[in-house]
C-alpha cells in the first residue's frame, strides 16, 4: 500500500485534471517511484486512489515503453546508441558497463544498484556519447568519466 504522503500526492495530481482517467500518466509515475516498478500492487494503488478500474490503469501504463514494467535496480542508466553516439563509441561504453559492472542491456547488477537500458536518441548528438542516470543528463562520456559518475550513485 502507498504511504499517506504518496496518497496525498496522487490526490493532488487528480485535482489538476478534469477526470480521473486523465490523471493516470503522472499518477502511475508516482506509484512507480513508490513501488520501484509497475507491479500489480502499484496499479492497484493508483486504481484505488483515483477510482479508475485497475485493468484500465494497467492498460494505459502498459502502452508506454518508458515506464518500468519489470523490477529494476535502484538507479537506471539509459545509454544512447543512435548514430552520433555509436560513431563516437557508445558501443564501447556498453562493453565497458558489461565488463566492469556486469551490466547487459535490459539487465540489473547483482546488488540491485544499476539497471541498463539502451535508449533512442536523447538529442545530444553534438556532445555524444550521452546517457541519463535516473533523471540526470551526462554528455561527452568516456570510460573514466562513467566510472566517476556512477560512483555518485549508491
Amino acid at each position: 500500500m502507498l504511504n499517506e504522503t504518496a496518497i496525498k500526492e496522487l490526490q493532488e495530481i487528480r485535482s489538476k485534471y478534469p477526470s480521473a482517467r486523465s490523471a493516470l500518466l503522472p499518477a502511475i509515475y508516482v506509484a512507480q517511484r513508490e513501488f520501484g516498478w509497475l507491479s500489480e500492487e502499484a496499479y492497484e494503488a493508483v486504481s484505488e486512489v483515483l477510482g479508475v478500474p485497475k485493468a484500465i490503469a494497467r492498460g494505459v501504463g502498459a502502452f508506454y515503453a518508458m515506464y518500468k514494467h519489470r523490477p529494476m535496480g535502484r538507479n537506471i542508466i539509459q545509454l544512447c546508441t543512435n548514430v552520433s553516439c555509436m560513431i563516437l563509441g557508445a558501443e564501447r561504453l556498453a562493453d565497458y558497463l558489461k565488463s566492469h559492472y556486469g551490466l547487459v542491456p535490459g539487465g540489473t547488477t547483482e546488488d540491485g544498484r544499476f539497471s541498463l537500458v539502451i535508449m533512442e536518441c536523447i538529442g545530444a548528438c553534438g556532445t555524444a556519447p550521452a546517457m541519463l542516470v535516473n533523471d540526470e543528463f551526462y554528455e561527452n562520456l568516456s570510460e573514466q568519466y562513467i566510472e566517476e559518475i556512477l560512483a555518485k550513485f549508491t
Binding site: E40, A55, R58, A62
Partner: peptide, 20 residues
C-alpha cells in the same frame, strides 16, 4: 461497465488481457 480487460502494450505486441 466491468472494465476488467484492456489492450496491453502497443503496435504488434498489442493484446487483450485481464488485469492480472
Amino acid at each position: 461497465g466491468a472494465s476488467a480487460i484492456a489492450v496491453m502494450e502497443r503496435g504488434g505486441h498489442s493484446h487483450i488481457e485481464p488485469f492480472s
